[in-house]
């Protein structure tokens, strides 16, 4: 399938959002709010829930379902307080030895005056740094759009999975076309060149697994994810914490390591 078609599917209006995944993957979900220093970011849902019989911490980006909720959720684009809220919950997960599930679906971290004033860059940087050494298993799943740094701030995990029609990109194809070629009509070409589909990223080893989807019915997706996450956590919980963080470091260390550059 053409790359840009995947972009359109990933952004499709009626595609299930973070909240749908939470409802279908976990039981006893309790949402918790706030970053304890500025406010609560509705674009980022954090909470606790049961994955089959395993208590887990859930971090999910939420873009909203209709105009009203989309405005409330800021179309899934977090402010710095969203990333700080996520990190606060991850630290608590570490304290209480709970695995962490991150569900990524954002067109990017929000670009606005308030976001810059409150240190969007610093908030993301801090998440990248801290997630690298968290002593509990982390699994991240790109469920829709994985937009650059705003997605990566939840993506420093032991394994990163993608839904078949999700995308994950360093920049939006629109942004790439207008910056590089000063021509918004080249969006489709940009989408192809950026290698942002699940298949491309599996080949580049940026992700570890593709969850196949039938985009009209997500029942199979939920079932596969639920079992997959459970087994993934069991596998990683068996490791001692040094091994776990060492593996995570090496997972990201390999991109552009000298050996691959001088091949």
């Amino acid at each position: 399938m053409e790359a840009y078609k995947r972009v359109a599917l990933a952004r499709k209006k009626n595609r299930p959002t973070g909240q749908d995944f939470i409802d279908n993957l976990f039981t006893d979900f309790i949402e918790v709010h706030g970053d304890r220093s500025f406010g609560d970011d509705p674009a980022m849902i954090t909470g606790l829930g049961m994955l089959i019989d395993m208590p887990v911490t859930i971090i999910a980006q939420e873009r909203g379902k209709n105009t009203k909720t989309r405005i409330k959720r800021n179309f899934g684009s977090s402010h710095p307080e969203g990333y700080r809220k996520a990190l606060r919950q991850m630290k608590l997960a570490e304290k209480f030895n709970r695995p962490i599930v991150c569900l990524i679906d954002t067109s990017g971290a929000f670009c606005g005056i308030g976001a810059e004033e409150r240190g969007q860059g610093q908030a993301i940087a801090k998440n990248l740094m801290e997630m690298m050494s968290l002593k509990v298993p982390i699994l991240s799943v790109v469920i829709g759009e994985g937009g650059s740094g705003g997605a990566l701030a939840l993506g420093v995990a032991d394994e990163v999975w993608m839904l078949e029609n999700a995308i994950y990109s360093v920049i939006s194809p629109e942004g790439c076309a207008s910056i590089l070629w000063k021509d918004a009509s080249k969006t489709k070409e940009a989408a192809r060149c950026l290698k942002l589909t699940a298949q491309d990223l599996l080949e580049l080893e940026v992700i570890d697994k593709i969850i196949s989807e039938n985009h009209r019915d997500f029942k199979n997706v939920y079932r596969e994810l639920k079992i997959g996450l459970y087994k993934g956590f069991q596998k990683n919980q068996a490791l001692d914490t040094d091994q776990l963080t060492q593996n995570r470091y090496q997972r990201f260390r390999k991109y552009g390591a000298i050996e691959s550059l001088t091949e």
């Binding site: 990248l128 740094m129 360093v170 950026l194 580049l204 990201f252």
Partner: peptide
Amino acid sequence: ARMQEGMLALMQMAKTSGAVKRHSD
């Protein structure tokens, strides 16, 4: 991030942050 290197460029953010963290720890 250098967009001509796609996601491999984005991954450098995580990689460098990990190295800073170890140095800091």
